[in-house]
């Protein structure tokens, strides 16, 4: 098991956003999380990436406990940073660094990490970054700044940037919600290619047919709980729960 999440809970003030979330993933799995806005999908991803601190629960990656409440208060910034690196996150709004070129965006974090650990080898870094951009179909755009790129290109740079740190699990938070249908296609295509290479991924998305085709498993969330979980074809084409059917009926 590459990821194990047990009894995760998170509240903001009096609002319980995650009520009791448990699920697990195998290496190479692609998991889609679907559900309406406000169901807690994004908060779940943010907890995995340590952008939010859960109130309760356990997160384990490769049997290593990354989070439990007893641990959280005593963790130093350095420890949190190391744990974060198990995950990569691609944002809905790309969040590329505007003052750096596409290539520099991809290289920035690995080169800064290498400065702290002199044992790390940086000689291949720019080749690695170029290779990733090529994989994203962007070798011609390596020296362009984010504002010179389309939304779809920016999102693909963001994916390359996340991959450069070689995370165990790559998370996507509605990666195409800020894109028009044409640009959505090019981003979904590269995610599909990653799936074909057995990249372990968690994808929060509203693209139902994409989720069904690309992911092995799917989770439907509503009101901070997992309502239904199973093979993605079954959850999306033939849901068992009334609430899932109701939600998916809007996509037909």
């Amino acid at each position: 098991m590459i990821l194990e999440v047990k009894n995760l809970k998170k509240s903001f003030g009096n609002t319980e956003v995650l009520k009791d979330i448990s699920f697990s993933m195998e290496k190479g799995d692609v998991l889609s999380i679907i559900g309406s806005s406000g169901s807690g999908k994004t908060t779940l991803l943010r907890c995995l990436n340590f952008l939010e601190t859960p109130d309760e629960g356990v997160i384990k990656v490769n049997e290593e406990t990354l989070f439990d409440p007893a641990l959280s208060s005593s963790m130093s910034e350095k420890e949190i940073r190391n744990k974060r690196l198990h995950f990569g996150l691609v944002f809905q709004s790309f969040n590329l660094f505007p003052q750096y070129t596409a290539l520099e965006n991809v290289c920035l974090a690995p080169s800064l990490l290498a400065k702290e650990n002199p044992s790390m080898d940086v000689s291949g870094l720019s080749d690695l970054a170029m290779g990733l951009l090529e994989q994203m179909g962007l070798s011609a755009k390596a020296d362009n700044y984010p504002h010179e790129l389309s939304g779809g290109q920016q999102q693909r740079v963001a994916i390359a940037r996340a991959l450069a740190l070689n995370p165990d699990i790559l998370c996507f938070d509605e990666p195409t919600s800020a894109l028009d249908p044409e640009l959505t296609g090019e981003v979904l295509r590269v995610i599909r290619e990653l799936a074909d290479k057995n990249t372990t991924m968690i994808i929060v998305t509203h693209e139902m047919s994409f989720a069904r085709d690309v992911s092995d498993r799917a989770i439907f969330m509503d009101g901070g709980v997992i309502v239904e979980e199973g093979p993605s074809k079954q959850v999306i084409d033939d849901p068992k729960m009334e609430r899932t059917k109701q939600f998916l009926s809007y996509y037909k």
Binding site: N49, N82, R84, G88, S93, N95, L96, L108, R161
Partner: peptide, 16 residues
């Protein structure tokens, strides 16, 4: 500066 710039740095393992 949008909070997303900080968060992008955080998830890439950068220090404050």
């Amino acid at each position: 500066i949008p909070v997303g710039q900080y968060e992008a740095g955080q998830v890439l393992g950068l220090t404050k």
